[in-house]
Design a protein around this nucleic acid. Sequence first.
DNA 1: ACTGCCGGGGG
DNA 2: CCCCCGGCAGT
Length: 376
Amino acid sequence: MEAERSPVPVPGCGRPPPRAAGRDPAASPMSVPAPPQGPAVGGGFAGLEFALPQEPEPRAADLGVPGTWAGAGGAAGPPTPSAHIPVPAQRDPPGKSRLDEVMAAAALTSLSTSTLLLGAPAAACSPEPGLEPWKEALVRPLGSCSSSGDWGWDLASDRSSPSIPSPPLPSEAAHFLFGEPAPKKRKSSVRVLFQCLWKRCGKVLSTASGMQRHIRLVHLGRQAEPEQSDGEEDFYYTELDVGMDVLTDGLSSLSPASPAASMPPASPRLELPEPRTLSSLLHPLALPPVPVLSPVAPREARRGDDAYQGCLAPTRPEPQPTTVRTCVPTPPSRLGASPRKPRGDAKKCRKVYGMDHRHLWCTACRWKKACQRFLD
DNA sequence: ACTGCCGGGGG
DNA sequence: CCCCCGGCAGT
């Protein structure tokens, strides 16, 4: 195996920019895309590839090709899309820590994917509180990924490397990755990660039930009672974030037009040593996706806070995680010992008389001091 | 951009 | 003191 795809010098490899090879239109427009430059590059998935446990030898470096993808794919790999990127045939000896990274990558992948999809209208509009809709949606891209490089990711990738669609996680790899954490369920075609929304938790599990159990036990403190679970747990875990203020902020700061476009940068650094870091990384970024229970279209939900919250807390009491950080209208000045006055609500001399009648102002106003005539 | 006014400075 | 103003912060 190794021998086969070992660094085979590509004709064009002599040139420093490894991209040239991959970018070459002649090679095959649709075929395996070469990775963008280094791992640090902003390219959405750029980092991802490198996080994968497949570059055991420094060899690749010699080649001058940052990623093995280019070398292997370009040289040995047939141009057929179906032959997609060579998958890590062998894992690292140490494996474990690597796995974390991989998991991280996987999580990112799944999240980004879901984001993209949910961003689409109607995708999540189903009134059903169930996971079905998005779950389904999530599967599709992964599946389709194996047959075509399309993936819809290019949408975002254009940010840093327009012409180079970063190779998404090869389906095989994806499965490999997702399968790892939950070996028993490996068979299911659906691979979804569930992240706990509780403030400091962020735990990621591969099964909904697992997550529910986790939440029930760890956070809700109640014993496992699948019966009485009215789906409340659902509310707490989704793959994304529910009405967290942080999130909201993040959203608003994002270009409302293209929430997806801002996703790619999420995965640039995959050197995250532990999944924990990942989750924290994901949070602020993992946005648009709608809360599972939200019957409202994502767009709508994202817009106004009111609307957003309204749809989030339809009937049940606000779950703690969403409340913890509530942005209380803390009176900034009064409590905060801020010397500054809240600002008078009464019209002051300046306003009353106007600049042209300055002589009518109270002296304080004239001196730019606190008005003495129109006290608050 | 406008407004209220604190903090400072000059005479 | 009296008078002015730079500059900050809220609208």
